[in-house]
Design a binder for these strands. Sequence first.
DNA 1: TATGAATGAGCATTCATTCAT
DNA 2: AATGAATGAATGCTCATTCAT
Lengths: 202, 202, 202, 202
Amino acid sequence: MAVQRETTRDRILEAAENAFGDKGYHETLVDDIAGRTSLSKGGFYFHFPSKEDLFFAVIDRLASRLTRRAEEAAGRCESPLAGADAALSEVLTTLGRRRRLAKVLLVQGYSMGSAFEQKRVEVFGQFAAVIQDGLDRAVEAGEISPIDTEVVSRAWLGAVNEVIVNWIYRGTPAPSDALPVLRKVLVGGLERPTADREASNG
Amino acid sequence: MAVQRETTRDRILEAAENAFGDKGYHETLVDDIAGRTSLSKGGFYFHFPSKEDLFFAVIDRLASRLTRRAEEAAGRCESPLAGADAALSEVLTTLGRRRRLAKVLLVQGYSMGSAFEQKRVEVFGQFAAVIQDGLDRAVEAGEISPIDTEVVSRAWLGAVNEVIVNWIYRGTPAPSDALPVLRKVLVGGLERPTADREASNG
Amino acid sequence: MAVQRETTRDRILEAAENAFGDKGYHETLVDDIAGRTSLSKGGFYFHFPSKEDLFFAVIDRLASRLTRRAEEAAGRCESPLAGADAALSEVLTTLGRRRRLAKVLLVQGYSMGSAFEQKRVEVFGQFAAVIQDGLDRAVEAGEISPIDTEVVSRAWLGAVNEVIVNWIYRGTPAPSDALPVLRKVLVGGLERPTADREASNG
Amino acid sequence: MAVQRETTRDRILEAAENAFGDKGYHETLVDDIAGRTSLSKGGFYFHFPSKEDLFFAVIDRLASRLTRRAEEAAGRCESPLAGADAALSEVLTTLGRRRRLAKVLLVQGYSMGSAFEQKRVEVFGQFAAVIQDGLDRAVEAGEISPIDTEVVSRAWLGAVNEVIVNWIYRGTPAPSDALPVLRKVLVGGLERPTADREASNG
DNA sequence: TATGAATGAGCATTCATTCAT
DNA sequence: AATGAATGAATGCTCATTCAT
């Protein structure tokens, strides 16, 4: 009942969050976590049944914290749209303040070493470059208002990525069905110059 | 001189694409690939110096194909914006037609088994639900026009994800800098059901 | 506090000495050593970081024992020349009593990589140093005429080495039979100062 | 019948001598030798049935050359003792001129299986036989007192071996510098049957 | 003679997990 | 609660050798 300053379980969770954030799941050994906790391997297994369970516990803890913050931020808003907007901002801001947290949540569980991560950077960079190039020229041509096309191209790429991955894992909605919505939201999200500047177009 | 119907190297690449798509990098054994190619393990190592090299070769092949298709689609369009739009559609459509290809490119290199993938589904689902809930209520409240909020919430989530991951790996742009742009594009991409704005629709 | 009858590490060392003596370094598998110790392969690796480390530990143990015996034998003698003579005898006798020990020390394991060659240098250097030290003092004491004791000590060492190796491979002549001859040749090969110096001996 | 300037087999032998001298038997791959000969692996196997056979061919070539030189040197001397002495000198001098040859002969390749050990016996036996023959005849000629010439020849061989190996690994003392000392010790170690020398025995 | 693709047995090392104490 | 010795299945990679061409 009294305040439990810090249980061994919590220390493990903390150490694991750091370890997974630093090195990813596979590269993090149970020995690493035991070491960071000044615990023997056997000691660790008293608190968690497996390394996988530990990883999930770490993820759950991080995810529930983040979800709660997002919900609270939304709850403080008057209109629902403002709430969704606030949730978006809250998540981005929180992750932006804690890079390691972000890494565990978004990448590290699904990564395998620096060589692989570099490859991810390279390949996604290729895709983003194609989009960004189009957007840059759209700006130059006066089709859309000036905007940070790097961020926008990453946003497009991420949106496509997530829609596809969601479809892979859950089977729906089909990409073909999602496409019109995605186009309306993403392409439609770009401001078109006001009428009086259209004269500057060829 | 003659057409090289199918080199052993290509057969390995093909088998590896399937294997990685089915089971992910770690779960795919060199023996699996050798088996699928009717090749001995030693035979495989004659063509590729390591399993990691093979994986990268697979990724490169897929990525360059997809990039080429996207660029070609963009090139067929008259305006740059239409080009970016077309590239987006092409990528989504192509990946949507080949689930396994999508898996290798977007997930499998960075995953570790079905339990982990389920966790990914669960956690990302939580985040998406928060956003979707807000959007649903925004629609009900008449703040925004009716739209498939599942797709939109996934798009938002994906956009945030990618912006964060890009920042993690490349250090820039900072999430705080990206936030306004992201909000403008994502939130601004939603139609407001004001009577006088219908004229702005194509 | 109590006497540590036999640690697992010692059992491994013992088994490894026999295995290396029987089959040489390359032919001895980690599985062999684990088997002889009734230990799993993983169990072995708890005690030694690698097969190479184990080999060096075996060599070190044998070498230090032999060096100690040689030094003790030399210490029991009154004159330096007799001491060097005794050290020579001790090494020869000891190796002659344990063929396997000799095999590990003089033959098995060398010439398979720079790390092994360095070890050879180190161990042979230890032996040579013991002999050379005795010879140096014999010179100082006026027992023998000044001479390049480094070369002489290497010669003694090499002669012993070869007699032993020959016995290992061919079974004859036995070290005990060879000893008197060896002593006469090697020790007798050193010049004694001219007659008028005999007065300086005890 | 015609002069065969350089057969492929000889080129392989040459390359192998260098390779074995540089890296030892195990570390030298068939690929290395094929590479140094600008030959494919398959090409190599046309000329030699196995890597082991190649190694033995290399050793045989080196050993027979060295043996011949030693015998010739002995043959040019008037007395048997001088001949043995000359053989000793010849071996030492020859090995001292070609460090790599010495390395292959004395160190590289042994102690890795019974076939290798048998070869060691054979080759060392050849050398010892040359020396022993000279000593036997020196005894017969009354140059030196009767003694176990097998042991003595092994001692000489071992002394030379060790001085050479020491030089190989540590670079000093140079064989040429060691030679006089070695001669004085080893040759001087043999009793001359002069009547007035019996007083010097203990 | 020579090539080079293919073989396949071999092997050290890793690491999550167990368990007697 | 904790230790640390022990397990054992798992696996990527090596390399001498073969063989169809």
